[in-house]
Design a protein around this nucleic acid. Structure first.
Lengths: 256, 256
DNA sequence: GAGTGGTCTAGACCACCCC
DNA sequence: GGGTGGTCTAGACCACTCT
């Protein structure tokens, strides 16, 4: 099933015919992940159209996340990177007791080198949704950071913590110490009982695309997590943005 | 802050300058949701570039999900449709006992008119991941359908059920009866204990874009749910694809 | 019919990568 | 230096919407 010239008489626009044919070739394995598509000049001859039309077809595949273009090199079938599975028990106490924050513990399991950078700690007004979840008005402590695996950014996170809990503790320091925020909260007497998580997905903003080094056609998963202590108080809200390419989230749901 | 002509000397390409300026105007509220952007011809004059360059900028915003183009009408700022929040307790027994399948029960709550169409029931080999979750080899019962709210498709789902459970029961009928598959499974003695859900996100395939009537720049949320009975057996796997625009998923996670 | 976006052409020059 | 994709032009014709 080789590539055929575009049919001008067909109702389907030429650039979509090109996208469809290339997509089929990719799916069939004719162009395996990581391989290079024919050059635009070559496709121009193959399909019998102008270069801008070929580029239209490639843009279509790029927006589907199927290929990535690299200037001066070519257009390549996207090689799916390894996916991080976030296990349903990732916040179990036994992990916290081991003295490692969730992200670092998971990285160890997979054998990747974790890193955290762009840490910023300040106080600011909480976004509406966060203020509502925390049940506070006015300023809260804000901890912003970026997580990397083997040098590749995979996630950004912003934690919001009520000032009366955080002020004067290590939670307000750049380095929160072993076990992270949750370990410190428990030391302060706020034993954690449960979390709620709100999961969504959307296309990244240009700023997020930059910060997570996302290529075209890759959405982000948004996750808003609220931590509750045994008294039923919301003690932290964490707003994270993850590359959808890098993550699958697992949850356990009770049927009773 | 009005729109300014493209700066040829700037390092940023013209079409990105155009996208950035329009994005800022949209964010600032100058073009509220649902409003119409200036026509391409008008933007050509404003920015002092060829029409294809203006179209490049608009394509950028479209891929971000910020605007939608409508032939013969104009380019419009996307109006965010109402989001369905899937509550953490959506599979609690009290809902099942009420005799309504999960989707219909939720629609009632929101006051929308639910519908199900494109129902197909057959037997087929299970995909690898599904076979592994069900612990079966060979064919399973496959139930495929599409869910709509107020006439708009919002989700597709494919359920896989081991043949020894489904054959000769209403589960293999087009209409599974009140309470759906889960109610039938419990009547058969498979009391449900818990579910696992695997959540991801990606750009839709062209077929999915068509079936869910998705516009450009809207990703899909994928959800693979496995139902376990009290004996610990996986009795159903449900593979769903949802428009990310329409959903937020809520989960409750234990901290202990 | 006027205005809109959708598609397409045939060129041009540039930035980047690799040899 | 030769090949690649990135950007851009100045036109053209078409399909669609609205009045």
């Amino acid at each position: 099933m080789a590539l055929r010239a575009v049919d001008d008489a067909a109702p389907e626009p030429g650039f979509l015919q090109i996208a469809r044919q290339l997509r089929q070739e990719i799916r069939s394995g004719a162009y395996p992940p990581g391989s290079k598509l024919p050059s635009e000049t070559e496709l121009t001859r193959t399909f019998g159209v102008a270069r801008m039309t070929v580029r239209g077809g490639i843009a279509e595949l790029r927006s589907e996340g199927l290929v990535v273009s690299e200037q001066g090199r070519g257009v390549f079938v996207r090689a799916r990177p390894p996916v991080r599975r976030l296990a349903a028990d990732r916040f179990a106490r036994r992990h916290r007791d081991a003295g490692r924050a969730a992200f670092l513990a998971e990285a160890d399991q997979v054998g990747s080198t974790p890193a955290v950078d762009e840490v910023v700690v300040d106080t600011a007004g909480a976004p509406d949704r966060v203020a509502s979840l925390l049940g506070v008005e006015g300023d809260v402590l804000r901890r912003s950071r970026r997580y990397l695996l083997d040098g590749q950014p995979v996630e950004t996170a912003v934690s919001y913590i009520p000032l009366d809990l955080a002020q004067g503790t290590k939670i307000a320091d750049l380095d929160t110490g072993p076990g992270g925020i949750y370990a410190r909260l428990e030391e302060l007497g706020h034993e954690l009982a449960h979390f709620t998580e709100e999961v969504g997905a959307r296309m990244p903003t240009p700023a997020e695309r930059e910060r997570l080094q996302l290529t075209a056609g890759v959405p982000v998963i948004t996750l808003l997590r609220t931590a509750y202590d045994t008294a039923g108080r919301a003690v932290e809200v964490c707003d994270t943005v993850k590359s959808a390419q890098s993550y699958v989230l697992e949850y356990l749901v009770d049927a009773t």
